[in-house]
Design a protein around this nucleic acid. Structure first.
Length: 360
DNA sequence: TCTGGGGTCCTAGGACCC
DNA sequence: TCTGGGGTCCTAGGACCC
């Protein structure tokens, strides 16, 4: 298998995936505003993972503090995040897509994938896939059709919910030209603001922007890349090479801020053990560590270091993390701690053969 | 209403070497 | 006494996405 070019790129995106999985196993919740987040306790520090369409009507969306969401939707059903259940549901969806004759599937996350197909009528294929996913999993999805990964990805948004939309070089500018640059995948609010400072507000303006201006603002790599995004151009290669993780991290927001050194050390030991369990499961050592600390007024600092030689020894890793922790401001209470471990890429996955997530 | 958790990639600037 | 130019490695931070 590996990277391949097809006539069409389809982007399959499950509708309100997490909420839909919950409704599937709790049918009595159908039609009710369902919010999934944290441990399902709206009095805790946590945020919304997914809200059902019924809950979105009240202005609730992902990333919103759970407390606020609960207040906005008085009779909401609030459920805890159940990652294993979503992983299992996701696996069934991807299996279904792979079973489609001739399809190459590049998984992007729990609830979305690119599918490369050589079809004369991609809309028919899209409907086939929707039907197959619904039959096999009970879940609805939207499908974007494109002549590049980016166009397929952006097209999906116009198909939601349960629809199909095609975006190619032929209609890209007429559909996207007048929209804000931040409508593009990969252009967030910060980059949007920096573009606006140069008078670049829309997708069409970004597509026609002066390359020197973009390079001056964003560097030799990102500058040209943003203009390419504006044009909807980029790779059309779908790559089903299995994903190789660059690292693993665990972080925890504490319900009570940590003030005592012993509390911090105990928390770090816990995080290190969790991270090492994930790393060990891949049979790869640790070559880098990052400690993330969020202090009580909302500021976050990170401390990192390379580890050499590469190690799988718990005590060695722990010693490094504690050393990094010694650099933090011990006089300030801690709201969050995170530990990230980087792993070396295996030989056979180097040279960019493994697809970069979102690297179009 | 205070702001999760798991990821990836890029850039700037300093250290260090030849 | 002044101080090039190229290269790599490392750390910190920024940005984005689901």
């Amino acid at each position: 298998m590996g990277p391949r070019t097809h006539a069409w790129v389809l982007h399959v995106d499950l509708d309100q995936f997490i909420a839909a999985v919950e409704v599937l196993r709790h049918p009595e919740l159908a039609g009710r505003p369902v919010i999934v987040g944290g441990r399902g306790d709206p009095t805790e520090r946590a945020v919304v993972s997914t809200a059902s369409y019924e809950a979105r009507e009240f202005g609730v969306g992902s990333g919103m503090p759970l407390r606020l969401a609960a207040r906005k939707v008085p009779d909401a059903v609030i459920l805890p995040v159940d990652a294993p259940a979503y992983t299992a549901a996701s696996a069934r969806v991807m299996e279904t897509l792979r079973a489609y004759p001739g399809a190459i599937v590049q998984v992007l996350g729990w609830d979305e994938a690119f599918v490369g197909v050589d079809a004369a009528f991609p809309e028919a294929t899209a409907r086939d896939l929707q039907r197959a996913v619904l039959e096999r999993t009970g879940l609805h999805c939207s499908v974007g059709i494109g002549d590049t990964l980016l166009r397929a990805k952006v097209a999906t948004g116009f198909g939601k919910p349960r629809g199909v939309f095609r975006l190619t070089a032929a209609n890209w500018m007429s559909v996207m030209g007048d929209r804000p640059a931040t409508a593009l995948w990969g252009v967030g609010s910060r980059v949007g603001r920096r573009l606006a400072a140069h008078g670049i507000e829309t997708v069409a303006q970004l597509a026609d922007a002066d390359l020197d201006v973009l390079v001056g603002e964003f560097g030799p790599r990102m500058g040209p890349w943003y203009r390419q995004l504006g044009r909807g151009e980029g790779t059309r290669v779908v790559d089903d090479t299995p994903w190789v993780a660059r690292g693993h991290s665990r972080e925890t927001t504490y319900q009570q801020d940590l003030t005592e050194p012993e509390e911090v050390e105990r928390a770090l030991r816990e995080l290190v053990d969790q991270v090492l369990a994930d790393v060990a499961a891949e049979g790869r050592p640790v070559i880098g560590l990052t400690l993330k600390v969020r202090y009580v007024p909302f500021t976050t600092k990170t401390f990192s270091r390379r580890i050499r030689p590469p190690t799988s020894d718990r005590e060695v890793v722990l010693a490094h993390v504690l050393e990094l922790s010694a650099k933090r401001d011990a006089s300030r209470a801690v709201r969050l701690l995170g530990v990230r471990a980087e792993m070396p890429m295996p030989e056979d996955a180097r040279d960019g053969h493994t697809p970069t997530r979102g690297g179009w």
